Amino acid sequence: MTDEILALCDQRRSLKKRKKDPEGGKQYRETNLKVKRSIKEATEKWIEDQCENIENSLKHNNSNKAYKIVKDLTDTKQARATTIKSKERKCLTEEKEILERWTENCSELYTHVATKKDSNMLNVPPSSNNARHSI
């Protein structure tokens, strides 16, 4: 993400509030297209740069560096969310904030107290396999 893309994202975010009026909606759509195009171009350039680094490393008989670049690009263990939204829909980018939000979310999932309304979810009709065994 370049500074220009981040500035466009900020501009798009401010225009989103005005999406309902015709002029604001038009500006939002135009800015949204610019953001998408810019991200796509930046991503393609970054991929080209990485491929060029790999090629140069192999040309200079530096297979270790080429292997490391390929491994870094394909390592799925490193992939993790770099942004997440808070309950208030605010974008969190700091690792500490993201971890706190995930902890909060998981805590809420597993500390849910069932109410009378929720009890119907647990009433599962018997499957045909279960019905056969009970005969």
Rank of each mutant, 00 (worst) to 15 (best):
T2I: 10
T83K: 12
R132H: 05
T103S: 09
E94D: 14
E104M: 08
E95L: 05
K77S: 09
R18T: 07
S128C: 03
T2F: 06
K59N: 12
K117R: 14
C91F: 00
T111V: 00
N130V: 15
D118P: 05
T31P: 00
K116H: 12
M121L: 02
Y28T: 03
I84T: 09
E41K: 15
K45L: 03
K117E: 15
C91I: 01
G25N: 07
L15W: 06
D3E: 15
M121D: 02
Y110K: 14
R13E: 03
T83M: 09
A42G: 03
I69G: 05
D3G: 13
E48Y: 11
E48D: 08
E48F: 11
C51E: 10
A131W: 09
Y28K: 06
E23C: 00
K20A: 10
K17F: 04
K65S: 06
M1C: 03
K90F: 03
M121Y: 01
S128D: 12
R80Q: 13
R18E: 08
R132T: 10
D10N: 03
E30P: 00
E108T: 02
N129C: 15
P22W: 00
T31M: 01
L8I: 03
D75T: 06
A42Q: 07
Y28N: 05
K40H: 08
N53M: 11
T83V: 08
G24P: 07
L122H: 09
M1T: 10
A79D: 06
I69E: 07
N129V: 15
S63E: 07
K96G: 02
K77C: 01
K19W: 04
P125E: 11
T82F: 08
K68N: 13
K87I: 06
D10I: 00
K90Y: 04
S86G: 05
T103G: 03
K68S: 12
T74I: 14
D21C: 04
K65P: 00
E52P: 01
N56I: 09
K68R: 13
A7R: 08
M1E: 07
N120G: 12
P125D: 10
T83H: 10
D49H: 10
Q78T: 09
K85Q: 04
E4S: 14
S134Y: 15
N62V: 07
L122R: 10
N123D: 10
E88A: 12
K90P: 04
S63M: 06
L122N: 12
D75L: 11
M121S: 03
T2P: 07
L109H: 09
A66G: 04
A131V: 15
P22M: 00
G24F: 14
N129A: 15
A114L: 11
K19T: 01
N123E: 13
S127W: 09
L8H: 01
A79L: 15
R101A: 06
P126H: 06
Y110H: 15
R29K: 03
L73R: 12
E23V: 04
P126N: 03
K65F: 10
K116L: 14
K26P: 01
T103I: 01
Q27M: 07
N130E: 15
K34D: 00
I47P: 02
M1Q: 11
C91W: 01
C106V: 08
R89L: 07
V124S: 06
P126D: 08
K26R: 11
D72I: 09
I47S: 05
N53E: 08
R80H: 14
K20F: 02
I69H: 04
S38N: 07
E88M: 13
K85L: 00
K59Q: 13
G24L: 12
K17G: 10
